[in-house]
Design a protein around this nucleic acid. Sequence first.
DNA 1: TAACTTTGACTTTCTTTGACTATTATATAA
DNA 2: TTATATAATAGTCAAAGAAAGTCAAAGTTA
Lengths: 148, 148
Amino acid sequence: MNLSDIIEEYIKNAIDEEEAIELKRSELAQTFNCVPSQINYVISTRFIPELGFYVESKRGGGGYIKISRISHSKADFLKSLICKLGSNMSQSVMDVYLRELLGYNIIDEKTAVVISTALSEKSLGQVDKIKRDQVRADSFKNILVKLI
Amino acid sequence: MNLSDIIEEYIKNAIDEEEAIELKRSELAQTFNCVPSQINYVISTRFIPELGFYVESKRGGGGYIKISRISHSKADFLKSLICKLGSNMSQSVMDVYLRELLGYNIIDEKTAVVISTALSEKSLGQVDKIKRDQVRADSFKNILVKLI
DNA sequence: TAACTTTGACTTTCTTTGACTATTATATAA
DNA sequence: TTATATAATAGTCAAAGAAAGTCAAAGTTA
C-alpha cells in the first residue's frame, strides 16, 4: 500500500456511513506528511463521479474540500450509460464503468469480475489490437442492454 | 536446477499455506541477483492458471506482483472443465457448458446470461469469423479461472 | 537443432513533489 | 463605506521517481 492508497482508505473510512464529509486539504496533507497536491491526486484518481463520488471545494480562508456520495436511479443510469458509450472502450475505462455500476448496486462484485475478465486485454488477446476496444465496446453495450 | 527453477521453488515455498502472496519484482530480482524481467519469465512459465495460479500486478510507486493459489475447496469441476477445453469454442458449445455450470450451481442465471451475452456472435461480430471461436475459448477459460 | 533460459534496452503505468496560479476572507487604508 | 492589500486556502501542471511489462537477442541444454 502506497501513500495514496492509505489516504484513500482514510477518507473512505471517514465518509463511511455519512452522506458527505468536509476536509481541510492542508491539514490532511500534514497528517500524512505529504505535499497538499497529493490530496488532489488522490481525489482525482479515486473520488471521481464514475466511482460514485462528488467533490466540491472552496479556496481562501475557511476553505474546504467536501466529498459526497452520489446516488442514482438504476434504470436511468443504465440507459444514460448506454447512450454515453462510444464505439471504443479500453479495458481501464470499462473497469471504471464497472466500478461505477458496482457503486450503484446495479451489478454485484461477481458479475463485475466476470465481465472484466471476459473482456480483459488478456481474453481478447487474439483480436487485433486496433479492434479490441471496439469489440469490448460492442460486448459491453450488449451486456448493459441485457441488464435493463 | 537452474535459476528459474530456484525462483519458482522460492515463490511456491512462500505461498505455502497462504492463499496468496505479494512480491516486489525488483526486490526478488535483487535477492536472486538477476534482472527483473526474469521474474516475469518465471511467472509466465510457472504460475499460469493452468497450473493453479493467478497473478495480478500494479506498476508505479508501491507497485507489486500478487500471486494467488486457486483454492482447492472449490469444485474440481471447474478445473477439469478448464483442462477439457480446447482452443476453440462455438457459441452453442459455450451455452451447453453454461447450462452445465448452472446445473451444478457454480454460476447463477444472471451470470450465465452475462457471459453468454458478452461472448455472443453478436458481441464478437467485429472479430474475424475464424478467430471468434478462439477468442471465445480464451475468454471463457479466463472466466472459469476467475470463478474458481 | 529445438526448446528453454538469461539478459538488457526500451515502454508503460502509477505516484510523489514542487513551483506557480486562482480564489476567498479579513484587515487596513482612503 | 468602499477600495485595496494581505493572508489563507485550494487548484494546476509538468517533471522526477518508482515500479512493472514487453520483446527480441544471446546463451544454454537436452
